[in-house]
Design a protein around this nucleic acid. Structure first.
Length: 651
DNA sequence: ACGCTCGCATCAGGTGGGAAACGG
DNA sequence: CCGTTTCCCACCTGATGCGAGCGT
């Protein structure tokens, strides 16, 4: 409990949003009758909804501005994928017990970043750690104590969204605080730096610099999250629990390789409002019920583990499930209990612990919290916004059954078309200035890519699609790299075809590395990801099985170093190549041959789906092209798509 | 005969849609 | 009556098991 609270507190402080005593909101929450089902407590809402109307616009805009992008989802692969991992998900991670999640944050609100759109999505900064400095303003919660926003932030300022340990003290045990923030206060807390403010990397905290190591976290599938966020991400919650999609996937750097850490995600209210989808927009209506009880924390199954372990590969929370069933939470540590129609903010907590997993509650400096505003989402029992639905269908492999056909993807309304228009699509990249590519998130492709699996194989896919897929905003990001994106991996000449074709090559987060990162031998099949071993966590949505399968084993995994220097310009292509090449993921023993993978996926796609004649999967299909593609070409393409990770750092 | 790889079948589980049920 | 939640459905992915084919 304490830990949880502390964490929260710290997080809050860093995030900027202060924690407030839950009083007001909690009171209402308690009234609700059926917490379990999560139904939005109508009591409060009832009145609220009507009110909403008015509030709508403003709130909406924020919501719409969307920062949300979910990313979760993967299935088995993932967690399990890391079979090698010490802790099985099935088992209650030791750490889990330690974080009484229930007590943690149910009542806290996370101050939502105001989210100037520009700042959020478009701002190049978004990819960078949010500068703490900008959060300097103090947000005074109604009746609450005031917490300086960024007070906790590292001096360097980068911690945008990061909560520093020190913050805990401020919150005292009171459990209660919550961060507020709804849009109103906007400017105050947002972790988002003012547009363009993100100055440079220089500001970034360097791991190890200063007192104590400061971790830096990258949101691996950020592009996908952003895409959802633009429309205000929605996450389905069900009694049995529903996986997030997109799911949370991070890359961490800056940890002490030998120290042990618990890594867990906490989901807290992003604002004190109850939301309702009205008139095609999300509007606030009434107050949120912050009394909702239930598990709010999901401890990564591999916790505790060494810093080296966490930094070695991508850390995915693909198995994390969201539920509205209070009753299920105590027993099920894989589920986080939420309330429908409430906006939530996931937080990543990294707590240094002893080898046996015991944390030092007296040393707040050992806790670091990272918040990515684009991860905000509204919990729903049924999708409200069709744009979100379409995004889910287009990107979540398990929802392929709902894709009429690939063509449809292209025929979708321009407004929200998820997939690239003919011009945007795959080949558009060719037209796009190289500069953009460089910035372009490599990973984006993975997540953003709407194309059917078959398309994934296309070697070109990486770059091209990315561009095409990017929404205008995203494109902007590309143009002005919001955060730092890492260069994509380059095909290694020596690798086999599979590798070439494999997603991992292109998409695997692992492949994306910040400059200067050194590769480490990959031990486990792959990142802590949840998408099956083969699959990359970050791939969240795609079947990864195939691709991974024949990934060359033994390829060294590259660990990331501090990002500071990411600018593409600074990255020598050669170096990138090296890194990429060295970043291959090791293939899990269980992995089958590539052929089976590829063929399986690819063929199945062809068989099952009607491929559009013009944009046939073949055309885009990496399968063919990838093979032909030489390493160099590949590297070019990949190098274009640089970043994938949103990078946050605590200081 | 043994081991390995590949292909196929099967199963478990995830997904959104739609209709029904529920509750204010 | 309306909004929300729940349940069931068809479809899909991914993991696994089994047998066939091949090489040693």
């Amino acid at each position: 409990m304490q830990l949880g609270e502390q964490l929260l507190g710290s997080a809050a402080s860093l995030a900027g949003p202060p924690f407030y005593p839950p009083e007001s909101s909690s009171a209402r929450g308690g009234q609700r009758g059926q917490p379990s089902s999560g139904s939005p407590q109508r009591l409060d809402l009832d009145k609220g909804p009507k009110k909403c109307g008015g509030a709508g616009p403003g709130m909406l805009s924020e919501a719409e501005a969307g920062e949300p992008f979910p990313g979760a989802g993967s299935k088995q692969g993932a967690p399990d994928g890391r079979k090698a991992a010490p802790c099985g998900e099935a088992e209650l991670p030791p750490a889990a017990a330690r974080y009484p999640l229930d007590s943690l944050s149910p009542e806290r609100y996370y101050l939502q970043s105001p989210g100037p759109q520009g700042a959020e999505l478009g701002a190049p900064c978004s990819l960078f750690p949010y500068p703490a400095a900008q959060h300097g303003s103090v947000y005074q919660a109604p009746g609450g104590a005031r917490y300086p926003y960024g007070s906790m932030l590292a001096p360097g300022g980068f911690s945008a969204a990061v909560c520093s340990p020190g913050g805990r003290a401020q919150f005292g045990g009171g459990g209660g605080g919550y961060q507020y923030g709804q849009g109103a206060a906007g400017p105050l807390y947002s972790p988002y730096p003012a547009a363009g403010s993100c100055s440079g990397l220089g500001a970034l905290a360097v791991p190890g610099s200063g007192s104590g190591l400061r971790a830096q976290v990258f949101l691996c599938n950020r592009p996908l999250w952003l895409k959802f966020h633009r429309h205000q991400t929605e996450m389905i919650i069900t009694k049995q629990g529903r996986r997030m999609f997109p799911f949370l996937s991070f890359n961490i750097t800056g940890l002490n390789p030998t120290a042990h850490y618990n890594v867990f995600v906490e989901v807290v209210l992003a604002d004190p409002n109850h939301w309702r989808f009205q008139g095609g927009k999300w509007v606030t209506c009434g107050k949120a019920d912050n009394n909702m009880q239930g598990n709010k924390v999901y401890v990564h199954p591999e916790s505790p583990n060494t810093g080296a372990h966490w930094m070695r590969q991508e850390i995915s929370f693909g198995k994390l499930k969201l539920t509205n069933n209070k009753g299920a939470n105590n027993n099920n540590t894989q589920m986080i209990v939420l309330q429908s129609l409430h906006k939530y903010q996931p937080r990543l907590h990294i707590v240094e612990v002893t080898e046996d997993g015991v944390e030092d509650l007296n040393d707040s400096s050992k806790t670091q919290t990272f918040i990515f505003p684009e991860n905000q989402f509204i919990a729903v029992t049924a999708y409200q916004n069709t744009d979100i639905t379409q995004l889910k269908i287009d990107h979540n492999p398990f929802a392929k059954g709902f894709r009429d056909n690939y063509d449809s993807m292209y025929t979708a309304s321009e407004n929200d078309r998820l997939t690239p228009s003919p011009t945007d699509s795959p080949r558009s990249h060719q037209i796009v200035p190289g500069a953009r590519y460089s910035v372009q998130p490599f990973f984006q492709e993975q997540f953003v890519n709407n194309l059917p699996p078959a398309r994934f194989y296309n070697g070109e896919r990486t770059v091209p699609q990315t561009n095409g897929l990017l929404s205008p905003q995203q494109n902007e990001e590309v143009a002005n790299p919001p955060q730092r994106w890492f260069v994509t991996p380059v095909q290694q000449p020596g690798t086999n075809k599979l590798d070439m074709n494999s997603y991992e090559t292109e998409y695997s987060p692992s492949t994306l590395l910040p400059y200067g990162i050194k590769s480490l031998p990959l031990q486990t099949s792959h990142a802590l990801g949840y998408y099956s071993d083969p699959t990359f966590p970050s791939m969240a949505g795609w079947g990864s099985r195939g691709y991974q399968r024949k990934m060359a084993t033994g390829l060294p995994w590259t660990s990331r170093t501090s990002p500071p220097a990411f600018s593409e310009d600074h990255l020598p292509k050669e170096k990138v190549k090296e890194e990429i090449s060295s970043s291959w993921i090791e293939t899990p023993p269980s992995i089958k041959s590539l052929d089976s993978n590829d063929s399986g996926i690819y063929t199945s796609a062809c068989k099952r789906r009607r491929l559009s004649p013009s944009t046939s999967s073949n055309e885009n299909s990496p399968t063919m092209k990838c093979e032909d593609m030489n390493a160099e070409d590949y590297s070019k393409d990949t190098s274009k798509g640089m970043g994938y990770y949103a990078f946050y750092t605590t200081t």
